[in-house]
């Protein structure tokens, strides 16, 4: 019997070191997959669709998805922190429209913008408050606060569905229509927001805490992260970014239609975020993921517009692509029933 013991003790400690070199598709992240798909589709379009691979069209493409991308950056920060912000579109519409109205009433550009931004941040802070302090689920909080903000905006703050950009404010229009060194300004703003988002997430303590909180909220709390402040800030960021997206939208057509609230824009935002591989269960993903997702959706949409594909068919194509992406992801990383976290939506 002692021999058995001795033999066993020789093997002691080696079990954890053992581990086959894993490789191949299993290790390919969704982000890489999306980038690859984007490149593939982009190349196909460049060859097959006339008028696609021109500088002007690429710039149009970029411009048309920049609002989506800007919202996506805000959403990504919140989703990494294990949240969800469905109130973005309401903030986009109401805060931007209110700003336009205030400027139109003669408050001046800076004051108008500041008030709009202030309101947006207040909405975000309220979201964070309701989620972290009262304890209402994020999905529901932001759904309700979106409805509330839209309602208050339409009821008390704005005159009609559509708010027009005040005249003689070229700076405002430039946000949507201008160019900087030949690059459309919406794209510049998108890039700037993405860069800020990226830097905050990867280079600052707050960003690290967002990841920590999204990964394991209770562990973050026990480690000494002030999770409430963190939650409030991340929703405030998301709202502020939504306000910026609203200004870009308003600038491009010199007006903003609050009816965008009832469109499926927010779902498109979620689409690009998730497509890029940001996990809705938090802690995973990066701004690069959003760029990848935005690029894929942008390419698809642009090509389909050029091919004059009907809008509903576009939706179907878009959806099937997403479904394919998440199905493939699930096949590559199958759910382990014994270790899966409860409540992953």
């Amino acid at each position: 019997m002692t021999e058995v013991v001795a033999m066993a003790s020789v093997k002691d400690g080696s079990s954890t070191a053992r581990g086959p070199a894993t490789f191949a598709l299993k290790n390919v992240g969704q982000e890489t997959l999306v980038v690859a798909t984007t490149v593939l589709i982009f190349s196909l379009c460049a060859i097959l669709v006339s008028g696609f691979f021109t500088l002007a069209n690429i710039s149009t493409l970029a411009r048309s998805v920049s609002v989506l991308g800007i919202l996506g950056v805000g959403m990504t920060v919140v989703v990494i922190g294990r949240g969800l912000d469905l109130s973005q579109v309401a903030v986009l519409a109401i805060c931007a429209a209110w700003s336009l109205k205030l400027i139109g009433l003669g408050y001046g550009l800076a004051a108008g913008l500041a008030m709009g931004l202030g309101f947006a941040i207040a909405v975000g802070a309220f979201n964070g408050f309701a989620i972290s302090i009262i304890g209402i689920p994020a999905l529901f909080t932001t759904l309700a606060s979106g409805t509330l903000v839209y309602g208050i905006g339409r009821w008390l703050m704005l005159d009609g569905i559509i708010t027009y950009a005040p005249e003689n404010q070229p700076l405002l229009l430039a946000l949507g229509q201008g160019e900087l060194l030949g690059i459309p300004i919406p794209l510049v703003i998108f890039a700037a927001v993405a860069l800020v988002g990226h830097l905050v997430l990867s280079r600052t303590t707050a960003g690290r805490f967002v990841y920590a909180f999204g990964d394991n909220a209770e562990a973050a709390r026990l480690t000494g992260v002030s999770v409430r402040v963190l939650t409030i800030s991340q929703y405030a960021f998301s709202s502020a970014v939504a306000f910026l997206a609203g200004l870009v939208t308003a600038g491009s057509v010199a007006s903003i239609n609050t009816n965008v609230f009832s469109s499926s824009l927010i779902f498109d935002v979620l689409l690009i975020v998730v497509l890029g591989g940001v996990s809705l269960s938090g802690g995973r993903g990066s701004i690069a993921s959003v760029l990848a997702g935005t690029a894929l959706i942008g390419t698809l949409l642009n090509a389909m517009i050029l091919l004059d594909v009907q809008g509903d068919v576009q939706n179907i194509v878009k959806s099937v692509v997403l479904l394919g992406a998440i199905t493939l992801d699930r096949k590559l990383h199958p759910r382990d029933e014994e270790t899966a976290r409860q409540g992953d939506l």
Binding site: A144, Y150, R154, L158
Partner: peptide, 14 residues
């Protein structure tokens, strides 16, 4: 007006 309905609904929800 439509906005007030939304506002009340959102408020009640929260």
């Amino acid at each position: 007006v439509g906005g007030a309905t939304s506002a009340f609904l959102g408020f009640m929800m929260l």
